[in-house]
Amino acid sequence: MASDKIKTAAPIDSRHPAAERSDHGLTPWRMKGELVLNCNCTVFCPCVISLGKHPPTEGYCQTWGGIRIDEGHYGGEDLSGLNLGLLIEIPGLMARGNWKAAVFIDERASDRAYNGLVQIMSGKAKGTTGLFSVLVSEFLGAERAPVSYVTEGDTRHITVGKKIQGAVHPVRGADPDRDIVVTNTQYWMGPDITVATASKGKVRAFGRVWDFDGRSAEICQIDWKGPGR
């Protein structure tokens, strides 16, 4: 018996060709690039090894960071070439939550890219950064800003307008041509963390005035994605 259903054309899929398909109603996204963090720890951040079970060296954590997105998308919107600035404050053990966080989004981002990055960095987009929706109790806000992430030699220079001025470089090892790298970790940022320090780490934002020159820093190659992880 012939079907009386009307055949319709298949819907056009206009999503980014690299975007993974999801059945959960969330927008697929991905960010590949590099991240640096500089915090108030006096020696290398113990959170990398303890996964938040050991307190920061000062008993609490104050951190600024920068992200360079080499390749990325949020749904069909390209994120490649954009930079981000971060501000994170943790009152004690990282794993216990109650974080405060803010994000500075490259002023070159389109409105769709800006909104997507807010979803990603607030944890609402799930995936790698989904933990923010659990650990961050106060999202201080998102702001457009001129965010620069420049590498000169082995030093990463990050500026966010007049709010963050940072310079981070790897700590020297016995072999000057090889970085000191903590590998195969379960750290949320990525498995391989380069031990670094900041020659400059100044923050003037959201009422915070921080100076972390000479304090702990990390460099990490990232490959974050969602909503599946």
Score class of each variant (00 low, 15 high):
136 V>D: 07
207 G>S: 10
39 C>P: 00
145 A>C: 09
3 S>R: 08
103 V>N: 13
103 V>S: 15
70 D>Q: 14
228 G>L: 10
28 P>K: 05
28 P>N: 05
71 E>R: 13
135 L>T: 04
47 C>W: 00
54 H>N: 10
1 M>F: 06
31 M>K: 05
36 V>L: 13
19 A>G: 09
141 G>H: 07
180 I>Y: 06
205 A>S: 13
164 I>D: 07
194 T>S: 10
38 N>F: 05
224 W>N: 04
119 Q>G: 01
79 L>D: 02
143 E>F: 03
147 V>N: 05
45 C>N: 03
150 V>A: 13
10 A>C: 00
26 L>T: 15
98 N>R: 15
212 F>E: 13
215 R>L: 13
28 P>H: 05
134 V>G: 07
25 G>L: 12
50 S>F: 03
199 S>I: 04
12 I>S: 13
186 Q>A: 15
119 Q>F: 00
98 N>L: 11
135 L>Q: 11
227 P>Y: 05
178 R>T: 10
10 A>V: 11
7 K>V: 06
190 G>V: 10
100 K>A: 14
195 V>I: 14
177 D>Y: 14
213 D>K: 14
224 W>V: 06
140 L>G: 10
170 P>Y: 00
98 N>Q: 13
187 Y>C: 06
133 S>R: 14
214 G>P: 09
37 L>V: 01
36 V>M: 11
75 G>H: 07
104 F>R: 11
225 K>F: 10
180 I>T: 13
84 L>R: 11
200 K>A: 12
167 A>C: 06
9 A>E: 02
65 G>T: 09
145 A>M: 11
33 G>I: 10
25 G>W: 03
75 G>C: 10
14 S>C: 12
212 F>D: 08
229 R>I: 13
207 G>K: 04
207 G>H: 10
46 P>A: 02
192 D>F: 06
50 S>A: 15
65 G>Y: 04
145 A>K: 07
78 D>Q: 00
73 H>A: 00
43 V>W: 12
43 V>Q: 14
131 L>S: 04
123 G>V: 04
38 N>R: 08
72 G>I: 09
104 F>H: 04
32 K>L: 08
156 R>E: 07
63 T>N: 09
61 C>D: 11
142 A>T: 15
169 H>Q: 12
215 R>I: 01
60 Y>P: 03
15 R>V: 07
13 D>Q: 12
94 M>I: 00
155 T>Q: 07
131 L>N: 05
29 W>K: 04
96 R>H: 06
15 R>G: 02
155 T>M: 05
99 W>M: 11
49 I>Q: 14
63 T>H: 00
148 S>W: 01
21 R>Q: 12
82 L>C: 02
68 R>D: 07
176 P>F: 09
205 A>R: 03
125 A>K: 09
220 C>L: 02
23 D>R: 11
209 V>C: 08
121 M>Q: 12
143 E>A: 13
143 E>C: 05
215 R>T: 13
212 F>V: 03
9 A>S: 07
189 M>N: 11
103 V>H: 09
209 V>H: 15
105 I>T: 11
212 F>K: 06
219 I>Y: 10
218 E>K: 02
138 E>W: 05
102 A>S: 10
11 P>M: 00
202 K>D: 04
42 T>R: 09
166 G>I: 08
219 I>F: 09
81 G>T: 04
32 K>F: 02
21 R>V: 14
113 A>N: 03
17 P>R: 03
139 F>Q: 07
159 T>W: 00
48 V>M: 03
166 G>W: 03
